[in-house]
């Protein structure tokens, strides 16, 4: 019974594929599999992520949504015993092609993590880190400007402009997370991946981040993993539902939440499991 559902589900996403490509897909995953040692963590996922939109991944914990997210900037490379197969195309290039340089890829695909992880450096140095290593700023003034712009975009500038030299770890949790977002956008990426960015934050900080995500959508393609369906409904235009390592259903957020095609999705949305 369960199996037949899954089989059905595998065809569901591909139905929307044609239209997605037409909409200008930034990233196209085709038959992506991930193995951690013996564990088959992600099974044959095919999914498009459209440019200039927020796509959210939802599903119960351990469903593979974070694993898939980490495929998109090859963060899985840093984990021992992790193998990725299938293709992930970004602007028509396979990012797992041996010719693709992972450093250059990550400069294009930024990432924000579940727990805020500012470096044990000053606020300024945290933001300046990316531009510095990539050599994006020609001089100090340009770097200063980049830092200020990024903080501005992340909505943090007003709160920290008087203490740019104090350590980033001294900020509150929500501020730290916005600092990490500012750090990610300082290198001006094309895509920003967010792995449950609000799970460690209080509701007010969460609201601020969500607002920020909405603003950032103008300039960046955003993928967000979230365990909160409300959040997915609030911030994203498209939603993908994962279950047990498989992509069950993907579609416009409104459609997924109001009229899910798949029973599993429906069960999850209505809170029957999770």
């Amino acid at each position: 019974m369960e199996n037949s559902h899954v089989r059905d589900a595998m065809h569901t996403p591909t139905e929307t594929e044609g239209s997605a490509a037409a909409m200008g897909a930034k990233i196209q995953a085709q038959g992506t599999n991930v193995h951690y040692g013996d564990k088959h963590a992600l099974k044959d996922v095919t999914l498009d992520i459209r440019a200039g939109e927020v796509t959210s991944f939802i599903g119960p914990s351990g469903c593979g949504k974070s694993t898939f997210l980490r495929c998109l900037n090859r963060m899985n490379d840093t984990i021992d015993g992790c193998r990725v197969s299938g293709t992930v195309m970004m602007d028509g290039e396979d990012i797992y092609d041996p010719k693709i340089d992972v450093v250059q890829l990550r400069a294009r695909v930024g990432m924000v993590f579940q727990k805020p992880n500012p470096f044990p450096k000053s606020i300024y140095d945290n933001i300046a880190y990316g531009p510095r290593i990539h050599g994006l700023a020609a001089n100090k003034d340009e770097l200063d400007e980049m830092v200020v712009t990024s903080l501005e975009k992340a909505g943090l500038l007003a709160e920290v402009k008087d203490r740019m030299d104090s350590p980033g770890t001294g900020l509150s949790g929500g501020q730290q997370q916005r600092l990490c977002i500012a750090r990610a956008i300082a290198i001006n990426p094309e895509v920003i991946l967010m792995d449950e960015p609000c799970s460690a934050l209080d509701p007010i900080a969460t609201a601020k981040i969500e607002e920020l995500i909405d603003e950032l959508r103008e300039n960046y393609t955003i993928v967000i993993v979230t365990h909160s369906m409300q959040q997915a409904a609030r911030v994203s235009q498209r939603t993908a539902f994962f279950h047990l390592g498989e992509l069950i259903e993907v579609g416009d957020t409104e459609q997924i939440f109001t009229n899910p095609r798949h029973k599993l999705t429906q069960g999850y949305i209505t809170g029957r499991f999770g």
Binding site: A51, G52, Q104, L136, N188, E190
Partner: peptide, 17 residues
Amino acid sequence: LTVKSGQGGARTRELVA
């Protein structure tokens, strides 16, 4: 919008490369 982000991305890409 896509163009906008594409432009910024292109410059970054160049410098990084």
